[in-house]
Amino acid sequence: MAERLSNREGIKGMANPTRYGIERFAYWVQRLTGLGLLAYLIGHIYETSTIVNGKIAWNQMLELTQTPQGHILLTLVIGMCVFHTANGIRVMLGHGGIGVGKPGQPEYPYKAASLNYKQRLCIWVSIALAALAMMYGASVLFGD
């Protein structure tokens, strides 16, 4: 049957983090932060490459980035980086079959063992670490 009639959810459905629990939310944030970090990396290479144009160009770029908006952006990057790394380690271990529970006899109400408290705890710890790092980063960036 034509894909047009397939009722496939598409990107909107893929990117909807509000259903299916915190694991789906973490999946969504991992993608978003991955793309955010990629954008930052490209921007960062552009920013630092101004040094080949000499000291004046470099200093002009620094003036541009060392503004309150620049600091907010960097704080966000810190948060994205910490969440992506911490949650990324959870995801990589999970992909290797580590920490996803043990098969057994399913019992009503059939709670899935792979959606266990260790997984949820790791997601919350990733969020907490990101928040802490952002607070510390912001205090360094904005404090004088």
């Binding site: 259903r19 299916y20 629990g21 694991e23 789906r24 973490a26 999946y27 991992q30 995801v91 999970g94 992909h95 899935a112 792979s114 959606l115 997984q119």
Partner: peptide
């Protein structure tokens, strides 16, 4: 598979 866990949910 990205281990989003929605299937098991």
């Amino acid at each position: 598979c990205h281990f989003a866990g929605s299937c098991s949910h």
